[in-house]
Simulated assay, not measured.
Amino acid sequence: MFRGGLVFANYCVTCHGINADGNGRAARLYNPRPANLRASDKNNAYIGLIIKLGGEAMGRSQFMPPWGAELTEEQMSDLVAYIRSNNVNPAANP
């Protein structure tokens, strides 16, 4: 989880917030607002794809950038694990 937390802190926290609740300092600039990852009902594969391909490619917000060209597969996998570890939605457990 530690490595995923580092990736989250470097790439995601500005929009998704320190608590992964969609309330980062830049969140107010976007409509729709960034996803609350703590309450997400998406599975690991979907989370991995949205990280890799970005929101627009997945039919979601155009403001979620694609990170696949910047992050390694290992970093993306670590990030999915970190996001999953913070999720409080029982429906999202794989």
Rank of each mutant, 00 (worst) to 15 (best):
A9S: 14
F63N: 13
N93L: 13
I18R: 13
L71Q: 01
T72N: 08
G17L: 10
E74C: 04
E74D: 11
N10E: 12
N43S: 09
Q62G: 13
F2W: 13
A57Q: 09
I83T: 05
K52V: 01
E73W: 07
Q62C: 09
R60C: 02
Q75T: 06
N19E: 15
F63D: 10
A57W: 00
M64C: 06
W67A: 01
V7G: 01
V13E: 12
P66G: 11
G5C: 02
N87P: 05
N23Y: 08
V88P: 01
V88E: 11
I18N: 14
R33C: 07
M76W: 02
N19W: 09
Y30R: 08
P65R: 02
G68L: 05
G55F: 03
F2Y: 15
A20Y: 00
I18M: 15
R28P: 11
A92K: 04
A69I: 05
I51E: 00
M58F: 00
Y30P: 00
R3H: 13
V7W: 00
R38W: 02
R60Q: 14
E70Q: 15
D21F: 06
S61K: 05
R33D: 09
G17P: 07
S85L: 09
V13S: 09
A20M: 12
F2H: 15
E70G: 15
N31D: 13
N23P: 01
